[in-house]
Write a protein that binds this DNA or RNA. Structure first.
Lengths: 149, 149
DNA sequence: TATTGTTATACTCTATAACTATA
DNA sequence: TATAGTTATAGAGTATAACAATA
């Protein structure tokens, strides 16, 4: 249903349902909720998984680069990195090229956790994608990409 | 670009870009960011505007009903209602039919603020929709609705 | 018993500002 | 000056738990 629960049998074709941003927020909320349930055992958040994934794809990546890729503030990035470091999932190394930068690398525990996380993400994605055909998934990704480009 | 900033000239067609949930989160973040900028003067959040809008569309609505429509927890709803009440945008009245329920109504200040908010939402929506044709907007809303239904 | 509202608590994300170190 | 990281702070949303009042 476009609006969550019409509650009664009222018409309820309120203009708020025609607001694109409204649907983006609800869809995001639904995804976040399911993600959280899927990851309760692993005790990881969406952002944390994204960071582990990107550090694995780009060993030695700097915090600033991470922040840009995930559209985060530097301070926000710090908070996430701190939590992951406290769990020994990654480490900070001083960059050789630029003394200001910290090069990030996954620790063994981080590699192991990422492997488990990717499997959980597979389940989570299957839940989301079950509503769509392959063609629709590609279309949706294309449309959403135009927003966050 | 699918991934925020490729930073270097690297290929970077990492699998994370094929994750639908990843794009939903980024798109939501971009919308939230622009929304916040648009509403700095009005000092309202997305959730707060949604609540004002729904209370206006459904005078006397109960907090539980609001929570269902916006997919929120009761405690979360309370926090939002409290802030709006502190600003004198709405009031709680004891329901006649059910003593457990609180009937919510907009105060004059809330009506005025909602009018301004709707205009700001128009600008915000124009920003989001500028990327799409009318047909694509309807398509996107349809696809997103399947996720939060 | 179940529902509604309420309070308290905690965590994450987000953002700003100010500070240090390096370029 | 500009960049990268750091720290402190604050607000908002989310969720859980426990409690009181009402149905």
């Amino acid at each position: 249903m476009a609006t969550p629960p019409p509650a009664d049998g009222e018409a309820d074709i309120g203009a708020i349902n025609e607001i694109l941003g409204f649907h983006i927020r609800l869809a995001h909320g639904a995804c976040l909720r399911h993600f959280t349930e899927t990851f309760t055992d692993l005790d990881l958040t969406q952002k944390q998984v994204s960071v582990l994934w990107l550090v694995d794809d780009h060993p030695g990546i700097a915090q600033t680069d991470l922040a840009q890729r995930l559209r985060m503030d530097r301070a926000t990035t710090m908070a996430i990195i701190n939590r992951l470091q406290a769990k020994h999932f990654l480490r900070r190394d001083r960059s050789d090229k630029d003394g200001r930068k910290q090069a990030l690398f996954l620790e063994p525990a981080g590699v192991a956790m990422l492997a488990r996380a990717k499997q959980a993400i597979g389940e989570h994605e299957a839940w989301v994608k079950s509503r769509f055909s392959d063609k629709e998934v590609k279309l949706l990704i294309d449309l959403l990409s135009r927003i966050h480009e």
